[in-house]
């Protein structure tokens, strides 16, 4: 089901673009990545909007959390009234994930870095589109790279680490407490290193995909910058001061 719904359509789109755009794998991979990134852009923007909204409502959230500490039911109810969805932050990520994994798998299958991988490819190719099988193997040379093999000069892994780090830095919302900040810092280091590790280990076609994904992400950030701009913790804290103080005084 996964192959039929996700991987095969992407793989055949890749082959179609390869066929009609001069037989250049790099161009086909770039365009397919671009198309899929554009498809998930509304979700990404929604995710950023949700994160931003939660950031803005932070004082109010803290207040109701304090107030209904012993009544989780009521706490959830109040949060819902504020329009908050606890899964709002991560759900779009999870929805995007199948497409990204599907794209990755399509690239790996199309490039088929080992003979055994190529053996799996015929079943993924749509037979009703003529001559797709004649395209195989796809051209794997690009500059110094054989897209089916790891980059011998290590340039791609370095570029992947650098762009992953920069992209993470751009899209990570400001942390609101020490714990969140520590998690953010870990992610800022772990994600680029992991991407770099895979770019180092696997076919450089995968590194190209990582790089293009990061570059498109960075471009999207600058195009839709307003969605990624968060109120700083200081600003939200300042906002919360006049609200909190009178209540504290009233209690005493």
């Amino acid at each position: 089901m996964w192959d039929v719904l996700i991987v095969r359509p992407i793989l055949n789109m890749l082959l179609l673009l390869y066929k009609y755009l001069g037989g250049e794998t790099i161009i086909a991979v770039t365009l397919v990545t671009l198309v899929l990134r554009l498809l998930v852009t509304p979700l990404m923007l929604k995710q950023q909007q949700a994160a931003r909204k939660q950031q803005e409502l932070r004082p109010k959230i803290m207040e109701i959390q304090k107030k209904y500490r012993d009544d989780p039911q009521k706490l959830m109810e109040e949060q819902r009234k504020l329009g908050l969805n606890p899964l709002g932050g991560c759900l779009p990520s999870l929805v995007q994930l199948p497409l990204m994994i599907g794209l990755y798998q399509a690239i790996i299958r199309a490039l088929a870095s080992t003979p055994l991988q190529l053996l799996e490819l015929p079943r993924d190719i749509y037979r009703w589109i003529p001559s797709f099988s004649s395209l195989i193997p796809l051209k794997s040379q690009f500059l110094w790279l054989d897209l089916a093999l790891p980059d011998p000069l290590l340039i791609m892994p370095i570029l992947v680490v650098a762009t992953s780090w920069f992209y993470q830095k751009l899209i990570t919302p400001p942390a609101l407490d020490a714990q969140a900040e520590a998690m953010n810092k870990q992610m800022m280091i772990m994600m680029p290193l992991m991407m770099g590790f895979f770019a180092l280990q696997y076919a450089s076609g995968l590194a190209i995909y990582f790089l293009i994904t990061n570059l498109i992400g960075i471009l999207q950030y600058y195009l839709f910058r307003q969605h990624y701009t968060y109120p700083t913790p200081e600003a939200t804290d300042k906002k919360s001061v006049p609200q909190k103080q009178p209540r504290a005084g009233a209690k005493s």
């Binding site: 995710q47 949700a50 994160a51 931003r52 909204k53 939660q54 950031q55 932070r58 959230i61 803290m62 959390q65 706490l75 959830m76 949060q79 908050l84 606890p86 899964l87 709002g88 932050g89 991560c90 759900l91 779009p92 990520s93 999870l94 995007q96 994930l97 990204m100 994994i101 990755y104 990570t172 919302p173 400001p174 942390a175 609101l176 407490d177 969140a180 998690m183 953010n184 992610m187 772990m190 994600m191 992991m194």
Partner: peptide, 24 residues
């Protein structure tokens, strides 16, 4: 033989961790 006041940040982080885990 997320149900926290910092759901924005945490949600994003949880999403990224889950995504990373699945991706790996």
């Amino acid at each position: 033989r997320g149900n926290t006041p910092h759901a924005g940040t945490r949600g994003w982080t949880i999403g990224a961790v889950v995504a990373l885990t699945v991706l790996l």
